[in-house]
Design a protein around this nucleic acid. Sequence first.
RNA 1: GUGCCCAUAGUUCAGUGGUAGAAUGUCUGUUUGUGGUACAGAAGGUCGAGGGUUCGAUCCCCUCUGGGCACCCCA
Length: 454
Amino acid sequence: MTQLSQEQEEDEKGKDGQITTRVLPGFMELLPAEQIVFDGIKAVIEAVYEKYGFVALDTPVIERAEVLLAKAGGETEKQIYQFTKGDNDLALRFDLTVPLARYVSEHANDLVFPFRRCHIGKVYRGEKPQKGRYREFYQCDIDIIGDGSLSLMNDAEIPSVINEVFSKLDFGPFVIKISNRKLITGLLDSLEAGNQSVGIIQTIDKLEKVGENEVRGLLVALGVPNPAIREIFQFIGINGTPQEMLMALRNLCVDNDIFRQGVSELDEVVCAMQALGVPEDRYVIDLTIARGLDYYTGTVYETVLRDYPGLGSICSGGRYDNLAEKYTDRKLPGVGISIGLTRLFSQLKEIGLIKTSVATPTKVLVVPLVEDMSMPLEIAKRIREAGISTEVYFEDTKMKNKLTYANKKGIPFVVLVGEDEIKSGLFAVKNMETGEQVMLAKEAIAAHINEAMK
RNA sequence: GUGCCCAUAGUUCAGUGGUAGAAUGUCUGUUUGUGGUACAGAAGGUCGAGGGUUCGAUCCCCUCUGGGCACCCCA
């Protein structure tokens, strides 16, 4: 796609020779009213992250291609946007975790461990766009990175953060699914199916989507022997409260150290979650979540909205043993999650859970009805000095259009500045919602509006 | 990469082998310093591009382009 042919170039242009203005597929852009809601959600997420002590960092969108490709393979590698500029092989970041690995490796000597940071930023994937899949999208990540080791308590704190984020966002009831990857790894080891574990885990991950029979068939196709399949289904069939499930896992008598370690880790994490006050109806142990990504090694999380299970996981993550093995000899274990904000927003919008109201931060529109702008400007300055977002409608048009402007953008107050007002020193302050209008001296306007907005 | 759908006004969509309509949005008026409601009116389309069949194609056929969806994988 380096050169457009003459024909294609003409196709790109409209009938007036103008360049087509359609946004690229897979890229989301919003109208003002939507953007305000989007930014509000982003702000809630970031505020909760910071409340747990995560510092908000940013890294470049572009990295050296070798950095981003170091860990990638297969699908991931194909989806990385890559390009050259001069002699440099560059790429757009595919997620926020790989740049984190580079960042931590580079600055390891200057960081304080355990290192916790949050990162809300855009990432890029060159794949075919479809429902809920974007080429450019926001991820909202938190990660805690330890130097050499990292307490399991961090694994318990993550669900507490998730709980608080989605409680505050108020998209309805949700449930955090939690498991530990050592369970399935250990089980498969004990069944001597360890060499196929990646395929088996990915298959189990599909359980909810395709159903039990299909999964059984896929496992058979993978060449898993029947007794092993029976054990696997016995394992993932365990259900109940976290306590019941932990009991059942112990009773499974899987003779494998990794498995036993998984059970005790999960136990410890669940206990700590209780101490952190994560409500019992907000989380559940789900042995079928395994997270396809193979770099998770311990605790794993997925979060779903109870009323909209079809959206899939809206927040996923887990524990990984070594973040940056490709970049440093230091062992850096970590735990983290990511919220796919762009997907979440677009899907919530589709099911009508996103309610837009205003299309501007403006609270007051100063409407001059005279030619001399000095009084309108002075009034706007006074209101702004009180910290209230204010604009002045400068265009020479009819009164009706000026009020319509305020109306359409959802500006709640209008101050009319006409000859009568200037003469009397009392200005009409109109509440656009109620239609009420009061006459006030210019010094009193800001205080009145602040009072009315409470 | 594989498969399936779709393409008509700014938007969402009807529709017919004789070159098009609704809703909504936009603008104007009823209302020359008072918006939201109502009523009236206007603007807005080479019916995605190219070719074929036909007296005639927006409609039927082919190709291309663009878009959507599913698989794969993932947020």
